[in-house]
């Protein structure tokens, strides 16, 4: 195994991690600020991908599609918050899970009704396709490097938003004591709608960016949703910093585990069973990681215990 391969896998893990972060950031904000478990977050990811694919197909421009994905997911998020989610804040988590699970079904069948059952085509923009040669002679896809850049930029933007703006102060205050900031005259319901739309827009953006690499199809959001929940549990619910660290940990663990474990088992058993045992163990690795973190820090890495 060469150092080049290891570096390539580390870049893959980083790229996977930052995209998970963009997805998980909205989820952790909504969970932290409003105390709401939103299973439909994955559907907003799907809405973003479909909006981008449809607009890119109609106009021929990926970038217009990307703008459309932000707008469509934010609009869908705001609409859902105003009509459904708003009624759930005071209810217990089971009601929230039931209602947002129903939203998944509505979004999935609605998307199928609009776009049909067949996967849509969304390609990487022409200027970003193909590999570039990095220092050291490693060929790496340019688009994935761009994704790493966009993910890091979004992380920086969110830290600034939460830490240094008035909206950020209100979000943190709402997280700490929602009655008090309502008493201080902040329109709490408008704040909630804004936070929800922001989280939705990020999910939609992640869907569109990742959709260009993957297949845009109904149900694409649910596997990512599970990972996003793992990320925010590891990072600590409500913490953007936790989501960032958690996402990178999950991305790295998953990518390197899938690559190193079968190779490691190859030393002690025959190749065929090593690949299948290694692959099986690698798919559990992030859950083992989550369990390990929770044993040491029950509230997550940056959460309140």
């Amino acid at each position: 195994m060469s150092a080049l391969l290891l570096i390539e896998q580390a870049l893959n893990g980083l790229q996977y991690g930052v995209m998970l972060f963009v997805m998980a950031a909205g989820l952790t904000l909504v969970f932290g600020v409003m105390g709401l478990i939103n299973l439909a977050h994955g559907s907003l990811y799907m809405v973003g991908a479909f909006a981008c694919a449809a607009v890119a197909a109609a106009t021929g421009s990926f970038w217009l599609g990307l703008a459309a994905s932000l707008a469509a997911a934010a609009a869908a998020g705001a609409l859902v918050e105003l009509t459904v989610i708003r009624r759930l804040y005071a209810r217990d988590h089971l009601d929230q899970v039931l209602a947002t699970f129903a939203l998944i079904l509505v979004f999935s069948e609605g998307t199928r009704w609009l776009f049909g059952s067949f996967p849509l085509y969304l390609d990487i923009p022409a200027g970003l396709s193909g590999p570039v040669t990095l220092p050291g002679g490693l060929d790496y896809p340019l688009y994935r490097l761009v994704l790493i850049g966009i993910g890091l930029a979004i992380a920086g933007g969110l830290f600034w938003l939460i830490g240094h703006t008035r909206l950020g102060i209100r979000i943190r205050a709402g997280e700490a004591d929602r009655e008090m900031i309502a008493a201080l005259g902040v329109d709490i319901s408008r704040l909630y709608t804004a936070v929800f739309a922001l989280g939705a827009a990020l999910a939609g953006l992640a869907g569109a960016l990742v959709g260009a690499l993957q297949s845009v199809q109904v149900g694409m959001g649910e596997p990512v949703l599970i990972l996003a929940f793992v990320v925010i549990v590891i990072g600590g619910i409500g913490s953007i910093k936790g989501a960032f660290v958690g996402a990178l940990l999950v991305g790295m663990t998953d990518t390197l585990g899938r690559f190193l474990l079968p190779a490691a088992f190859g030393h002690i058993m025959d190749p065929s069973s090593a690949t299948s045992v290694g692959a099986a163990l690698a798919s559990m690795l992030i859950y083992i990681l989550m369990a390990g973190v929770l044993v040491v820090r029950p509230g997550g890495l940056y959460g309140r215990a």
């Binding site: 996977y16 994935r144 990742v210 297949s215 690559f259 692959a279």
Partner: peptide, 19 residues
């Protein structure tokens, strides 16, 4: 190589193919 069922990102496997 055995991948996960439902896996959507294959960057790791592609790196292994390359090597």
């Amino acid at each position: 190589v055995y991948t996960q069922l439902g896996q959507t990102d294959y960057a790791g496997e592609i790196a292994q193919i390359r090597a």
